[in-house]
Design a protein around this nucleic acid. Structure first.
Lengths: 206, 206
DNA sequence: TTTGTATCAGACTGTTTGGTCTGGTATCAA
DNA sequence: TTGATACCAGACCAAACAGTCTGATACAAA
């Protein structure tokens, strides 16, 4: 068991995240997490009161990273241009360009593993996920609303801006599943590209 | 244990499908399935060699129903109009109109439960899913290709028709997850509506 | 030096799990 | 009537599971 610089608690979280994303929560045993992180039962239950406790910590950590990515994409979009239309486009392009790296480091999303099991949702584990979704919706909907006020698309199609913002989240999660089903990680990039084309067409329709 | 008219094997499949969709595969025990279906251990292992065997039968059954829905939607779209653009629109409208019923009878999709667990994917359980995805892609891509040849969108945006067809599948799965996270089943209808608006805008862009 | 506390290691335990096995009944062909 | 076979009930079992407990080490305050 090689000692890297990371504190034990974080080592456990990192190993557990990979295992749960790959195999699901119920299919991941505490012993597996212990083996993968090179720790022990004593260490595990010292840092986490129960397996469910680990799940909560896992989702909280993961969602925080997710919101951080949203902020990075928004900052990039706002740095590139002042035009609302261009900002939405740059926002989507940011993710599209990072799609391959994203699929490299994780072949799926922790949210999917968590939302699959009702016991986790009932235990409040989905709450950080909802917060992340709302953060995405708020952030992107703001950009979209400005763009729709700018272009003609909004008036023509009466777009539900919140639902359109949610569609980005929906595309991400759906693309993860499609990539898993077919074994082709390239779907993430292609789906984000499709999304960008679709949103472009909607915003520029006149 | 009330005897309905259904054969035991089907009773088990119906109960198991609901449980796996709701709680996931690993989190669903054989004993739970037995209790829910009002059968016994003997009956279960008479009809299924193992729990994994049940998973395979479950997905095969589910995917068949999925492809049947695709056929129904295509038939409806072709019956409504001869125009390619109208057909794509009618195809998407068909699902949007059935979204509420769909969320009523099942709050999520079996595919999600199956794809979450690597052991199931490795055991070939994902194969019927891929077949269903391909059937969807082929069916819808045909409609889309005709519509794009008809309208000007295709030449303007150089759309990847297959990826666009996949986007319908992606939207479905993503919407299931969003509905689960927020607890609001209305997301399915709204996301399908967004999808319809987006595709409309793309196809009619000129 | 002593006392306390945070951090672990790993043996251990009670329960749940997927799966087996024995026996019983219903059905149908010979 | 007899035998064979499909179908099923439920006791039973070994393995895996989440969680506990005892004890050891490290370090800091007193």
């Amino acid at each position: 068991m090689p000692r890297d610089g990371r504190p034990t608690r974080e080592r456990i979280l990192i190993s557990a995240e990979a295992l749960v994303i790959e195999n699901g929560y119920a299919a991941t045993s505490v012993d597996q997490v212990i083996a993968a992180s090179g720790t022990s039962k004593g260490a595990f239950f010292h840092h986490f009161g129960s397996k469910l406790d680990l799940a909560r910590a896992l989702v909280e950590r993961y969602a925080a990273g997710d919101v951080a990515q949203l902020d990075a994409a928004t900052a990039y979009a706002e740095a590139v241009t002042d035009e609302p239309l261009g900002q939405v486009d740059a926002f989507l392009a940011w993710f599209e360009e990072r799609a391959d790296d994203l699929m490299d480091e994780q072949s799926s999303c922790l949210y999917i593993s968590v939302l699959t099991e009702r016991q986790l949702v009932n235990a409040g584990t989905a709450e950080p996920i909802v917060k992340a979704v709302v953060a995405w919706r708020d952030g992107l909907a703001r950009l979209l609303a400005a763009a729709l006020a700018d272009g003609a698309g909004g008036r023509r199609h009466q777009v539900d801006v919140d639902a359109l913002a949610d569609h980005v989240f929906v595309t991400f999660e759906g693309a993860f599943l499609l990539a898993r089903a077919t074994g082709d990680p390239g779907h993430m990039r292609r789906q984000l590209h499709v999304l960008r084309d679709l949103v472009r067409a909607l915003l520029r329709a006149r």
